[in-house]
Deep mutational scan, measured.
Amino acid sequence: AGLEKQLAIELKVKQGAENMIQTYSNGSTKDRKLLLTAQQMLQDSKTKIDIIRMQLRRALQ
């Protein structure tokens, strides 16, 4: 149950990062740093999601 909860949280983080990227990508240059931060968050989240999914698969075997 813990892994499913972690996965749900990470999927929400990923969605939030995608929303932030959309918001900041057509903003001013001061938003550039926020855009880069959001892109890093998205990448980190995708990595965590992959790891959690692997752990889930392993647990189900």
Score class of each variant (00 low, 15 high):
20 M>D: 06
27 G>F: 05
51 I>Q: 12
4 E>Q: 10
15 Q>S: 14
19 N>M: 07
13 V>T: 11
33 K>A: 05
44 D>M: 08
38 A>N: 01
32 R>N: 11
38 A>E: 00
17 A>E: 11
28 S>C: 08
32 R>E: 08
44 D>F: 14
26 N>G: 11
54 M>F: 04
49 I>W: 04
7 L>V: 10
50 D>S: 14
60 L>F: 02
20 M>F: 03
26 N>S: 11
31 D>S: 15
7 L>P: 04
51 I>E: 12
19 N>P: 06
36 L>E: 13
17 A>G: 07
57 R>M: 07
45 S>C: 15
36 L>R: 14
22 Q>R: 12
34 L>T: 02
52 I>F: 08
58 R>A: 06
9 I>V: 12
49 I>D: 02
55 Q>R: 14
28 S>T: 08
15 Q>M: 13
61 Q>Y: 00
39 Q>A: 03
6 Q>T: 07
48 K>V: 04
56 L>P: 08
58 R>Q: 06
26 N>I: 00
18 E>R: 08
44 D>E: 11
4 E>F: 08
60 L>A: 09
2 G>M: 12
32 R>W: 03
3 L>P: 01
2 G>R: 10
19 N>F: 05
13 V>E: 13
32 R>Y: 05
21 I>E: 08
26 N>T: 11
42 L>D: 00
4 E>V: 04
61 Q>P: 02
7 L>S: 07
6 Q>G: 07
36 L>F: 11
57 R>D: 02
39 Q>M: 05
32 R>P: 07
55 Q>P: 03
26 N>Q: 07
33 K>R: 07
5 K>M: 05
34 L>M: 12
32 R>S: 08
25 S>V: 08
54 M>H: 09
36 L>M: 09
37 T>G: 10
54 M>N: 11
9 I>Y: 06
53 R>Y: 04
58 R>L: 03
11 L>H: 05
61 Q>C: 14
28 S>V: 05
14 K>A: 06
12 K>A: 04
53 R>S: 04
14 K>I: 03
1 A>G: 15
7 L>I: 10
36 L>W: 08
10 E>H: 03
43 Q>C: 02
8 A>T: 04
27 G>W: 02
27 G>P: 08
61 Q>R: 15
51 I>K: 15
3 L>K: 14
1 A>M: 02
28 S>P: 09
16 G>S: 14
7 L>D: 12
16 G>M: 14
60 L>E: 12
19 N>W: 02
13 V>L: 07
24 Y>D: 13
53 R>P: 00
30 K>G: 08
5 K>P: 02
24 Y>A: 14
13 V>A: 12
39 Q>L: 03
15 Q>W: 00
43 Q>F: 02
33 K>N: 12
29 T>V: 05
35 L>Y: 06
57 R>C: 01
22 Q>S: 12
6 Q>Y: 10
6 Q>K: 04
56 L>C: 12
26 N>H: 12
12 K>C: 10
35 L>N: 00
24 Y>F: 05
59 A>G: 11
33 K>C: 08
59 A>R: 09
17 A>P: 05
15 Q>P: 15
47 T>A: 14
54 M>C: 09
43 Q>A: 12
30 K>S: 03
34 L>K: 12
38 A>I: 15
11 L>F: 03
60 L>Y: 15
59 A>W: 05
13 V>H: 12
5 K>L: 03
59 A>Y: 10
9 I>K: 15
6 Q>W: 02
8 A>I: 07
31 D>H: 14
45 S>L: 15
24 Y>W: 01
54 M>I: 08
47 T>Q: 07
24 Y>Q: 12
30 K>A: 04
58 R>M: 05
12 K>F: 01
32 R>T: 12
17 A>K: 12
46 K>Q: 07
42 L>Q: 00
17 A>F: 07
10 E>W: 14
29 T>F: 08
39 Q>T: 02
25 S>N: 12
51 I>T: 13
57 R>A: 09
11 L>R: 13
28 S>Q: 11
34 L>D: 01
6 Q>E: 11
35 L>W: 08
58 R>I: 03
54 M>P: 06
12 K>S: 12
38 A>G: 03
38 A>Q: 00
14 K>D: 02
8 A>G: 06
12 K>L: 01
46 K>A: 01
60 L>M: 09
24 Y>K: 13
5 K>V: 03
55 Q>N: 07
37 T>S: 12
39 Q>P: 00
57 R>I: 04
27 G>A: 07
30 K>L: 02
3 L>W: 08
5 K>F: 01
4 E>R: 05
3 L>S: 12
56 L>E: 10
17 A>Q: 06
13 V>M: 12
52 I>A: 04
52 I>N: 02
53 R>F: 11
11 L>C: 06
30 K>T: 06
7 L>N: 11
10 E>T: 04
37 T>C: 11
48 K>Q: 01
58 R>E: 07
22 Q>Y: 04
7 L>G: 12
36 L>C: 04
44 D>P: 02
26 N>C: 07
38 A>D: 00
20 M>L: 06
2 G>W: 09
24 Y>H: 11
59 A>Q: 12
14 K>T: 11
2 G>Y: 10
